[in-house]
Design a protein around this nucleic acid. Sequence first.
DNA 1: CGCCCTATTGATCACGGTCAAGAGTCGTGG
DNA 2: CCACGACTCTTGACCGTGATCAATAGGGCG
Lengths: 240, 240
Amino acid sequence: MEARRKNSVNTRGALPASEQFLGDFPLFADLKRNEIKRLARGAVSYELPRGRVLFHRGEACAALHLVVSGQVKLSVQTARGDEKVIELVGAGGSLGEVALLMKQPYIMTAEVIADAGFVELGRDAVLEQLAHNVNFLRCILGEVCRRLNQRTRDLENCLLLNGTQRVAGFLLSQAPANGSTGTLTTITLPTKKSIIASRLNLTHEHFSRILREIQTAGLVEVRGRQIRLLDVVRLRSFPE
Amino acid sequence: MEARRKNSVNTRGALPASEQFLGDFPLFADLKRNEIKRLARGAVSYELPRGRVLFHRGEACAALHLVVSGQVKLSVQTARGDEKVIELVGAGGSLGEVALLMKQPYIMTAEVIADAGFVELGRDAVLEQLAHNVNFLRCILGEVCRRLNQRTRDLENCLLLNGTQRVAGFLLSQAPANGSTGTLTTITLPTKKSIIASRLNLTHEHFSRILREIQTAGLVEVRGRQIRLLDVVRLRSFPE
DNA sequence: CGCCCTATTGATCACGGTCAAGAGTCGTGG
DNA sequence: CCACGACTCTTGACCGTGATCAATAGGGCG
């Protein structure tokens, strides 16, 4: 508990730091200044170090969590202890919409994997806004739709792509979306390989082998977490 | 095209058949009488025989589809032709919310697998209602949330359960939700086994073997599509 | 330097897929 | 009524992807 120091944002000076932050937050892009202001009222900001669990599956949801910085992994537990990573959330992402809206427990566990900063909007404040602010309702609806699409794509990937194809797809998705040829893009894995592997529904051993395989095939060059994409085109249509 | 006979619902008498229908539709449970009436204005009803494709992945979405009767399967295509079933939708279900809302192409293909009746709400009518009717917005938001939960559960099942466990879970989910012991529930598979198998990410061969296995173990009794659950408790915690 | 964490590599195994053949089941028409 | 074909389901034999277990490197840091 000690490390979870929360600061009411409104104790600060003239322009609360996180009112500015909320205004820039992707989820609230369509909100007007005064709507932001009302949302910011119950906001609380805090930081959590790597390894900290933000919430466990099954707990009740008390707030909407906005990720200011750092990185969080969402995962579920296997029968015997080990976990599968479902999603990685970085700065600009949010957690807990559905649990909050549906008034049901979290269905995943959220753990900080890179020291992170959060802004939290209290449950009641959010529900209150939802009840009275149509714009806010629309923001949330859009976000949930986006997430449903994302989840559906993940399910598809898992159903009809093999490991190598999933890795290739992941690497490409990490590359900045440049329309250019990009025959020489270098990407950096967002976290350690074992987590990426789990996210792709692979063991870290298998992930390692796959990286080797596509490196041998001359498609990429791996050095630690830095991966240089040598042949985006062939990577995109793998294996041939 | 011949079989896709559409009838404008409003050409009917005093109380349009589908105004009644819309009022009973789960998705619109929270709407008031006059809101229903407005929605019903652009409604069109029609029927499609088994085998008909309602829409293909990639097509633009022109309407919200409500399933009155029959059954529809949503699927995606593998690299080489064969398909994976993602979801089965029966009477009371709806299709196309996300594609309509996000103004993006369908991401799945919908095929009728049991002669079905539909009511269709035109794209513009729905968007219009969304823009002006907060209650409707809330209905849709709820539905999308439910679906996101469903999809997440599916992904989990696929990630951390083996074939046998998925089958057991599916059989249990088909049983009516009676709190009782239910040591002798009989269920009927909603469609042919090969489709169920695909839905569970199995080949129909493997599905067949699994059914045999749990039958041999004394957990169920299979006769065609009728399956009698002999030991719900052991089935629930399989394999032991 | 030694320790802990992360990553790689090897050997083996099993779950589930593929291919092929046969058994039921049902509807149609001679 | 039976024959035929189409379709669904079952069973068998074999194989491949990817998991498991185990040992060994790297790499950062106190």
